[in-house]
């Protein structure tokens, strides 16, 4: 009896030991060969590159559904936030064209009523499992094969009863050679106020840019001009003051005009106002401009 028990325990130990050795080999020493991965598994800097190319492609084709489908492959929890954050990073390293393209894509997505739920790739062999490679590789699903739920943005007429039209499983059109994407409605200058604050630098022009949802937008190019020159800069360089914030030191006794490169109303005749400290000392004040997409 004791011998049987001893033998049983020994066999159990041998089995456990063998399992441990097998698992160590399979997980640590020689994991299954890594091929056929998905974009979501890429390192973050490569995901950034992927997003940048998606934005460049969108800038070239204007095909938003296709760009959306590609973005969903990255499985960002919030693709718009990811794009905005990347736009800021691009600005920080001087990639202004890339920042423009990414911002344009983020804006286009913002203007969409709904961002479609991530789609599932058509059933293939378990492609996410490394090593389980099918000899026939399934092609990337073309937009024709993708199913989206699009909600249009209805035009509201007073007194009209709005019926939401939802189109299900409508094939996405193939890309067409449109010249450039439309960025949405021009930004409106919703407020322009003179700021007299002795704690701020003289002639400080503060600009804040919001989208239609009152969310600050990074990477928006601001163009400021005056009699003898001009300057271009972007929102988002001072994220501690807001993603849509930018500022500029105006020249004294000079009239400035400010507009957004994406299209906006123009703030004109911005001459730094002369303010006074509580002690009566004069100093140059500034302005705060707020742009918002309608």
């Amino acid at each position: 009896m004791k011998r049987s028990l001893w033998l049983f325990l020994t066999l159990l130990c041998a089995l456990s030991l063998g399992t441990g050795v097998g698992l160590s080999y399979a997980w640590v020493v020689s994991p299954r060969s890594l091929t056929d991965s998905q974009p979501a598994a890429l390192r973050s800097d490569f995901k950034d590159q992927f997003r940048a190319v998606i934005a460049a492609s969108y800038a070239a084709t204007g095909n938003l559904p296709r760009a959306q489908a590609r973005l969903t492959l990255l499985e960002d929890s919030n693709p718009i936030e990811a794009l905005n954050a990347q736009a800021q990073r691009a600005i920080a390293v001087g990639e202004f064209l890339q920042a423009d393209q990414i911002t344009a894509l983020a804006l286009a997505l913002e203007n969409e009523a709904d961002f479609p739920a991530p789609f599932s790739l058509p059933p293939t062999s378990d492609a996410s499992s490394p090593g389980n490679i099918d000899s026939t590789v399934t092609p990337f699903p073309s937009p024709d094969a993708l199913s989206f739920v699009f909600t249009g943005t209805p035009e509201i007429v007073a007194g009209q009863t709005i019926e939401a039209t939802v189109i299900l499983n409508t094939p996405t059109p193939r890309p067409t050679r449109t010249p450039m994407p439309t960025y949405g409605a021009p930004f409106r200058l919703v407020s322009q106020e003179a700021v007299c604050n002795p704690n701020l630098p003289d002639g400080l022009l503060q600009i804040v840019v919001y989208n239609s949802s009152r969310r600050q937008l990074a990477g928006v190019k601001v163009i400021i001009t005056w009699d003898t020159g001009g300057e271009e800069f972007f929102t988002g360089f001072k994220p501690e003051l807001g993603n849509g914030y930018a500022d500029f030191l105006m020249l004294p006794d000079t009239s400035h005009a400010v507009q957004l490169a994406l299209g906006s109303e123009i703030a004109v005749n911005l001459v730094p106002p002369v303010c006074q400290t509580p002690g009566g000392d004069p100093y140059l004040g500034g302005y705060k401009l707020t742009f918002q997409q309608p």
Binding site: A14, L15, S16, L17, G18, T19, G20, V21, W27
Partner: peptide, 14 residues
């Protein structure tokens, strides 16, 4: 038993 364990471990891990 040891070899059986190795096989099981490899199958599970791979």
């Amino acid at each position: 038993a040891f070899l059986l364990g190795i096989s099981a471990g490899l199958a599970y891990g791979w």
